[in-house]
Design a protein around this nucleic acid. Structure first.
Lengths: 160, 160
DNA sequence: GATATTAAGTCAGTAATATTGACTCATCGG
DNA sequence: CCGATGAGTCAATATTACTGACTTAATATC
């Protein structure tokens, strides 16, 4: 058996397809009950998450992360603003920009949703162990696009 | 710093949220161009994948894996059958069942879609290394539901 | 300073994926 | 025979997303 690493076997990659499908399905699903109670969807959660992780992010930058159109984000964002979860403020340098931040209720909601996902992810991390978690990160990081990798590296330098 | 493992830090879990979002987004996206050319969507890909991995699967079992309703699957499945990608045959023991299999063109299409994802996943595996891949699997396996874990373990026993 | 570009928002129409609810039909199991 | 099950169908609706066309305000460029 020569090629153990140069050319990952089909079965290995088939397993990865299954793993990603189920893990992503159940991880995202973890917050759904809390979202439903508020009449919100996963799109709202994604917006809350990335605004929370990037206080003061511009609409254009958020669109680039989510990879959706302006019209699609508008629906989600206007609901979040109407409900008082997200605040907009004009950019200081460029007043055309609307810098997005979570309000206090918005941060609390995002935290609640995060906690539901934490219930699933925390035990998984503990069970798998630090070494496995490191491998988990390395593989996921290698799967994504360059631009996403750049984002990850900028936001999660070792230490924080 | 006492709790290094018992209670994974927020920042660790925040990173995981980002990693899962971007990796899943780009991994699933890899097959989109090929799907678009045929006027098919991701839902068709998922059905093709799980029928391909489970030849002779019943409709009920497929619904359980995909976690969608019968009506939602019907749209996707009838299109795949109409186009000759999926064949249905009555169960031998229970003739109410419609056992689903990929036709030869269906298997070829599924393979093409798989190849697009392989282009993304294969290099990621090679770069990250065998140890990282093992950790990747362990963490994803721990994230998913019991039923999904059972599925994974049944389909991917070590050896194949 | 006029002009082009950019950031953001909006209106309209449509598509893909999914849902709930209410049925039908054939077959299986007791 | 009869209730339960596997599968399919019709209808209406929700969520998330899209393309295309425009407007407004502010910045950048010539």
């Amino acid at each position: 058996m020569p090629d153990s690493k140069a050319d990952p076997a089909d079965t290995d990659l088939r397993l990865a397809q299954d793993l990603l499908f189920f893990a992503y399905r159940d991880f995202t699903n973890a917050a759904d009950v809390a979202l439903d109670e508020l009449g919100l969807g996963r799109a709202h959660h994604r917006a809350l998450h990335f605004i929370g992780r990037n206080p003061g992010i511009t609409v254009t930058d958020l669109l680039g992360i989510l990879r959706i159109t302006k019209q699609s984000l508008a629906r989600v964002l206007s609901e979040l603003v109407d409900r008082g979860y997200v605040a907009q403020s004009p950019g200081r340098a460029d007043r055309r920009q609307r810098l997005l931040t979570l309000t206090e209720p918005g941060a609390a909601l995002e935290r609640r949703l995060f906690d539901r996902q934490r219930e699933r992810l925390g035990p998984a991390y503990s069970e798998a162990g630090a070494s496995a978690v490191d491998g988990f990160r390395r593989v996921l990081r290698a799967i994504m696009d360059d631009s996403a990798r750049t984002y990850i590296d900028a936001h999660h330098r070792r230490g924080s």
